[in-house]
Design a protein around this nucleic acid. Sequence first.
DNA 1: ACTAGGATATTT
DNA 2: AATATCCTAGTA
Length: 206
Amino acid sequence: MIPYSFYVNQDILDISKKLLGKRLHSKIGGVETAGIIVETEAYRGSDDKACHAYGGNRSPRSLSMYKEGGHAYVYICYGIHPLFNIVTSSKGKAEVVLIRALQPVKGIEEMKLRRNQHKEINLCNGPGKLTQALGITKLHNEAILYNSTAEIWLEEGMNIPNDDILTGPRVGLSTAQECMNWPWRFRIKGNKFTSKPNTVYYEGYP
DNA sequence: ACTAGGATATTT
DNA sequence: AATATCCTAGTA
């Protein structure tokens, strides 16, 4: 299990890249499922208009973003889909990483049942899909990811060198003005399990 | 292959 | 009224 120290006092863009290649595990309803993180996005409260905590904004939804690194921020997107984010950095800064896609490695049969899909490629290739596959719901908002009883946690996986990371604009933003073009989406080059809109990207980090 | 529409919690 | 999405059903 990846410890508390990993989640705090790291630059939000650095940790978004370091999360690539790590494994996200859940043990929910007695079944363990896991996948390699292959796509992330960074959200930074202080100056990022796309972030729910932009400029220190607080709402019932965004409160958990202000917790200390190592907590989960789960919110409901479009009224239906829970999206799973990892709070990073220190308390009060509201910096989170959205997990956008996984390569399934454990509990694949359970994922197929939960997702009602039979193709492995369709189990975790989107932020709303992977929460369903892993059994993550809004009840896991504010969950701690680093203690022995955690239902959701990370494990070390493979190290992804910078040359194997593609960056591009974040997905689904249209009113965040200049922020919507920031290359704060990260994914593993050549990996087939990333989420759909794969059109725009840059090699490496500008 | 591509596109339109529906599902619907939360915020402004 | 808009949104950090996904699925189905329709047309091509």
